[in-house]
Computed example of a mutant assay.
Amino acid sequence: MTTPRLVATDLDGTLVRSDGTVSPYTHDVIEALDARGVPVVFVTGRPLRWAEEVFGYVGAHGLAIVSNGALVWDVARDAVDLTRAVPVADGLEACTLIREAVPGSAFAVETLDGIALEPEFLERHPLPDSAPRGPLDRIFRGPALKVLARHEELDPQEFWTAAEEAVGERLVVTWSSASTLLEMSAPGVTKASTLALLCERMGVDRSEVVAFGDMPNDLPMLEWVGRSYAMANAHPSVLAVADHVAPDHDDDGVARVLAGLFDA
């Protein structure tokens, strides 16, 4: 493979360390690539409100893929570049099917305006004070960037399998959390499919892309690119698919690999 023309990297468990920071070394490597005209595109499952915390590291190209591909955010302009949202009817139908198949499921909806939750949805992260709670048909009022499903008794793999069987091809179901939290996107919307749209726009072939990830929501992206790296701390399914293994995210694995690939 020739030297990559574009880098795509997940954030949590990949570029971001366990303490939630991006190291100075990683920052320096990203800046070095950006100076050479090699964009480092953040491709994350985070909603916009969390992704903004690390936008200072994006670089001059100023684009980030957010919410597992449902949103491309123009960081430089602080504006929407592209949305690929879940229609209300499709989302409500999928949630009904999951609830019937897996009693005890609770749901939340992520939009550009933030998150809205059912009363039973137990969020592990701090919520905005303005986040509403209510029945699903009242909080799901417009297209969603992500539909979230949580279960307090099943393990993530068990819940994922059951939800996928219930939903079929109506939505894309994946997960990236240590807790039992599923993330659902519109049909065909993954990190890979939105990255493909971005690469086409930039004139970059998939063979010229190197990508890094650690969780099942990264699988489509890692399978699509020309060269893929699973982090040493990655989920077993990711380690099984990736071409290579990068050092642990707490050891600046992404930056160390990139420094070697680009002699930075």
Rank of each mutant, 00 (worst) to 15 (best):
E118K: 01
E118N: 03
P156L: 13
P132V: 03
P156N: 14
H151C: 08
F140Y: 09
V147P: 01
R124N: 10
L117W: 05
G142K: 05
F140H: 02
E123H: 15
R141N: 13
D137H: 09
E152S: 09
D137T: 04
E152V: 02
P143S: 00
H151V: 01
F140V: 00
A149Y: 12
L122F: 03
A116Q: 13
E123I: 14
L148P: 00
P156C: 08
L145K: 10
K146G: 06
G142I: 00
D155S: 06
R124Y: 10
L148Y: 12
L117P: 01
R150G: 08
R133N: 05
E153R: 11
P119C: 01
F121L: 12
I139H: 06
G142Q: 14
L122Y: 04
P128M: 07
P128I: 04
L127Y: 14
R138M: 08
R150A: 12
H125D: 12
P143N: 01
E153F: 10
F140S: 01
D155H: 10
I115L: 02
L148S: 03
E153Y: 05
G142D: 08
L117N: 04
L136M: 02
P132Y: 03
D137R: 00
L154E: 12
G142R: 11
R141A: 10
P156A: 12
F140W: 02
P143Q: 03
P135C: 01
F121D: 08
D137L: 02
V147L: 10
P128C: 07
P143W: 06
E120F: 03
L127R: 14
E152T: 10
H125C: 00
A149N: 05
F140P: 00
E123M: 15
E153V: 13
L122A: 15
